[in-house]
Structures are given as C-alpha cells and as structure tokens.
Design a protein around this nucleic acid. Structure first.
Lengths: 105, 105
DNA sequence: CCGAATTGTCAAGTGAAAAGTGACAGTTTA
DNA sequence: TAAACTGTCACTTTTCACTTGACAATTCGG
C-alpha cells in the first residue's frame, strides 16, 4: 500500500517549470515567438518561465488555447501551487479552526 | 439530449452567495461568530458574503476546515468564477491565438 | 427605560502580485 | 561592421485580498 501524502513535503512543480522544460522545447520556438502567439509581452512570459509569476486565469486560457489541451491543466497546476503555499503560511492556525455541523432546522 | 454549455451565458454563482444563502443559515450563527471561528475579521467575511471579495486559497482552506468538506469545493467555485470573467475579458483575442502542434524532435 | 455591548456595513489605507514599459548586454544576421 | 533580435533586469501601474477605523442600528443587562 503506497501512501499518497495529502500534504506533500515539497512544493508542487511550478507551472512555469513545465512550460520551460517540456512545452517550449517541444514547440521549438523562441520565447519571443511564443509570447507573440500568446498575445503577451515576452517579458511577462519570461517571468512565468523563471517562476517569478504564477499562471493567472487569463494566462491559463491563453496557454490552453496555444497547447490545445484546454485551460484546466494550467489552472490545476497553479491551484496545487497556491494551496501548498497557503497551507504552509496558515500553519497551525488551520488546526484551531473547528469543524461545525449544520443543525437540522 | 441536453446541451451542456461550455461557455455559459451567465456568470457562475459567486462562492459568497452559496456561503450567504446556504451555509451560514444552516449553521445558525452570526457573521461575527463565524468570522471568529475562521480566524478572519468580520469585515473580511462580510466582503466575501457581499461578493466584493473572492475566495483566496487561504480562505478556501479556512472554509474547508470549518465546513468539513475540504477546500476543493471552494476552490472550484472560485475557479469557475475567475475563468468566466477572464474569458469574457479576453473576448475575441482568444480566437486569435493559434493551437500549435509539437513537432516530434 | 436606559446605557452598554454587539452587529452589519462603509471607507480609507497597506501589501502582494500580475502586467506594461523602458533599458541594456550579448548574439545573430545581412 | 552595423542593424535587428533575444534574454533579462528594473521601474511603474493596476488590481485585489486584507486590515483598521468609524458609525448607525439592534440587542441585551441592570
């Protein structure tokens, strides 16, 4: 039985890393060319690739169209990333929040 | 055969509306009391309920713990909301983005 | 009945993050 | 060799969640 950690120790892969290491090489185009296709500045794409920017919903739509796989892939990756950092930031405070039951009215 | 619209005409329900109309009444507590449990100010909770704020990843974690249903429910609702508005904002620009095929290197 | 506490709501200010713009060094190309 | 292109950095703007302070209306204890 393999344990699937609900709270992984290390941060989930940044979407920018996938873009940089898998998608762009397969397309074989320069950052500038991809940015032109996406309709964003090459500077903004560069920030995503260098993991200085996350994937906004707008960017997810653009990438989803460009790659043909839809926006959900990018939304999911960013979501995993955001949740991991939010949970890390909240820390023990989450444990102090009770789970309330709805009383049948 | 019922048509499921991929791009619904009207905006998806705001998570704050669900919280306001379904969750809070079932719990039978005041906004202030809920906010205290969540560990946020009553002003911030009010902004969510009045749909002036969205659900941040942090807030999703708090609500997930409080309701006992996990954070994904709230993340999904906010995601649907964000994507709908992003697509509306992008408009025809999305159509101008080509779908590129990866050339087998 | 009245004063105090609580509650809902509004407005201004803070901080973080995405995105635009300008600049610059290194490389490619004609 | 000069011009165009590319990657990268720094500055600015904008948006949004969140904090804080304030205030009117309501609830509650003496």
């Amino acid at each position: 039985m393999v344990e699937i950690a609900q709270r992984p120790v290390r941060a989930p892969t940044h979407p920018g890393a996938v873009l940089r290491e898998d998608v762009l090489p397969a397309l074989g185009l320069s950052v500038t060319a991809i940015a032109r296709h996406l309709g964003v500045t090459r500077q903004q794409l560069h920030r995503v690739l260098s993991e200085q920017s996350g994937i906004s919903p707008e960017m997810a739509l653009r990438l989803g169209k460009l790659c043909g796989n839809g926006e959900m892939l990018w939304m999911r990756m960013q979501e995993a990333h955001d949740l991991w950092h939010a949970r890390r930031k909240l820390g023990a405070e989450l444990d102090r929040i009770p789970t309330l039951r709805a009383d049948a009215a």
